[in-house]
Amino acid sequence: MARFLTKHLLFLLLTLLVVSLLVFTLNEFTPGAVARKILGAYATQEQVDHLTKQMGLDRPVLVRYVDYVRAAATGDLGYSTRFKLPVKDVLFKHLANTALLAAIAFACIVPLSMLLGITAGMREASRLDRAILMFSTVVASIPEFALGVFLASVFVVWLGWLPGTATLMAGGGWSVASQFVLPVAVIVLFDAGYVVSMIRASMVEVMQRPYIRTAVLKGMPFRRVIVRHALRNAMLTPITVIMLQINYLVAGVVVVETVFAYPGFGRMMLEATLFKDIALIEAGALVAVFLAVLTNILGDLAYIVLDPRIRV
């Protein structure tokens, strides 16, 4: 176990270093752009050069990268030129908002997709299976912004039941809680569609295994066969995928956040890229990669817990 963890944590560290260096170098392709962005279009070239020098952006990349890593190790992630605040403050405020949204969505996605996926896969090609398969395929095919537009036109424009934005500020007579309904609904529909089809495919395969026949021919009621023999086996393959959804839910929901003006991590990153807020981009990228690798490790761990054939 200790070996497993050290190996993966080392890989995590390596990935973080590689990615941060990549992002750092990428920013070099637009020299002077940072100062230009801060000073605006009407500043003179001298002013831009001056600021560039002042910010130390004229030094070689590697030198600055080492400086950056050294500072980051002490918790100093730099200063956000867009928000005019330390990166740390901006980052964690938005990250917390996103984490809340992600947690609610994840809590809906897992039970929902397990229920639908198992139900569909346990009787392949039954009417219920076809219905669930078609439903999940179609929902997973609708881009998040389109789902947002569809749901908003019904529940906001037509019925007027829900607010069209989720700024997390009570206003316009809408509670903060009600603001969560639509963003969560969009994320859950889009993402669960994908997870359902994964679980269904795995369940269909498991149901064809001889050990399911053994269980049925023991005289076991079908429901008990599903719960006791099929369920755990059917979750083996999808468990890794499910864990990876955490990654998507935190770092991939920029579109949903934009649709509903939700002040989350993704939208922060979008603004940072549009404003060339390099310090913030860099820090955000690191957070995203950290999460990605972490969820990978979580997925592996969950698999180990479920499958006795792998023992640590």
Binding site: R209, P210, Y211, R213, T214, A215, L217, K218, G219, M220, H229, R232, N233, L236, L306, D307, P308, R309
Partner: peptide, 18 residues
């Protein structure tokens, strides 16, 4: 399972691995 029981060809596959 009670009055009629069966033994299968591939015992490894016939037993639940988990």
């Amino acid at each position: 399972g009670r009055r009629i029981a069966m033994v299968y060809q591939d015992p490894m596959a016939s037993l639940n691995p988990v």
